[in-house]
Design a protein around this nucleic acid. Structure first.
Lengths: 249, 249
DNA sequence: CAGATCTCTTGATATAGATCATGGAAATAT
DNA sequence: ATATTTCCATGATCTATATCAAGAGATCTG
């Protein structure tokens, strides 16, 4: 997850700057995922001024939790995160996994307080967008507002599909849907659609899909026996996308 | 659902206009739910010009479906709606219920095409907000954009909680959570928090909560036997909110 | 690097809630 | 009004997946 495979930095300097998390939006390899809409170059320079680029978060470290003060939205820069919410009795639901270019914290806007907890799944970094400043420059930049709306709308759509998954799908359908959704997202980021790492634990996967860990293990083993996938620890290889796709229900 | 109980129109004329769906935003009794943020009066007049107020939709009639052309967002004016998405094999998931003042169609924004189907649960009416015009006047009205963002963010939050419900809660917890969420929403609209109509069928409820109809019937009967609620067809009365609340998990 | 602690896999068993079945009540159509 | 369809409630049975159990890797920690 350290670097895009199909995007070659023009200069070594650029790669170095990027690695040090200082690259500006204009030059960021995630630009097309993060801010695809028509922002002017002058807008980007404005936006750039308010963005804080973080040092990295180590595995299992918290980006924010439900009782942190809400100050910022985040965009994943490298690595991956999960978000969770908890019921009063301590049970938790993994509400989402987030990869480079994706926004975290959008559900905090309405109450101006985080509604979930966000944790790094591996060593990861983010761009921090202080919300107040974002609103401020948004007033002069309708395209930025539209960009945010679009992001929110997309996550809403994802979540409705997750409701369908949680409410109506069998364990097999859940796993197939999940694997293909990951595959699609990696492909969008210029990674292999068939070979990738599951940066989250089996238990995170199980939780997210409304299954027991044991069921996830069993389904994956069976998929492997049937030649649909090959697993080696965290590494997975999709071997029959057509069949997997047919299984999504 | 025809009228708010704690909001008395100042003039009979107003009530009549409202009933005929011609009342302007400035005078609408739903204003505080629909557009609570600081919109100037001049803004409202602008907004008012682009809003189309519909004739009513009868029970089971479609507001839009996944293959309608996306043109507008909607705000429920009276009555109630459900939204659904379907899996390839025909299974459907009820993704939400919508009451007066709530927006429908927000998940359509990112693809500029409806991602779900919306149906009236009873005779209902809506305000139609043509999205293109909304974007246009939004450029001059940052508060309107913020209002939309807030709405989206709120629905996102609701959906994450639904994921928790679908993924982690028992049938009893699901029902208790659902009933209290309805109660809260009715209360916000000035209706009784304890006595209301379930405008959706048992099967819609079951579907939404990821249960079988029979389970919904059984749980409700048991809740009634335990004195938590009283049911009479579509009419329900909450009798022990404390206990229900403790059951939400 | 050794012990401790998680994580993953696989098997055996239990169970919450689905499915099947039926009858009555309500809503809708004729 | 009456027929027809849909909706709701309740009982009996079944099943997909949870839970319990146990061992093998992997990962952390001092």
């Amino acid at each position: 997850m350290a670097e895009l495979v199909n995007v070659m930095p023009l200069f070594n300097d650029l790669a170095k700057i990027e690695h040090e998390h200082r690259v500006a939006c204009q030059d960021c390899s995630l630009f097309r995922l993060c801010l695809p809409l028509g922002l002017q170059n002058s807008d980007l320079i404005q936006l750039d001024k308010i963005i804080k680029r973080s040092q990295s978060y180590k595995r299992a470290h918290s980006l924010f939790s439900i009782d942190s003060e809400f100050k910022s939205l985040y965009v994943v820069r490298s690595g991956s995160f999960k978000t969770t919410i908890s019921a009063v009795n301590g049970r938790e639901q993994v509400t989402g996994f987030y990869f480079p270019g994706e926004f975290i914290g959008l559900d905090a806007i309405h109450q101006q307080s985080y509604q979930s907890n966000a944790k790094a799944l591996e060593t990861s970094s983010v761009c921090e967008l202080p919300f107040e400043n974002l609103q401020e420059i948004g007033k002069q930049m309708p395209q930025l507002q539209i960009q945010l709306l679009t992001r929110l709308s997309k996550e809403l759509s994802t979540d409705k599909n997750l409701m369908l998954l949680l409410g109506k799908k069998t364990a097999d359908e859940k796993m197939a849907t999940f694997l293909l959704s990951l595959s699609k997202r990696f492909q969008d980021r210029g990674f292999s659609a068939t070979d990738f790492q599951l940066t989250m634990s089996r238990s995170d996967i199980a939780n997210h899909l409304g299954l027991a860990v044991e069921t996830v293990s069993r389904v994956m083993s069976r998929f492997q026996d049937d030649g649909l996938i090959a697993i080696n620890g965290k590494a997975i290889s999709l071997r029959n996308n057509a069949e997997l796709n047919a299984m999504c229900g």
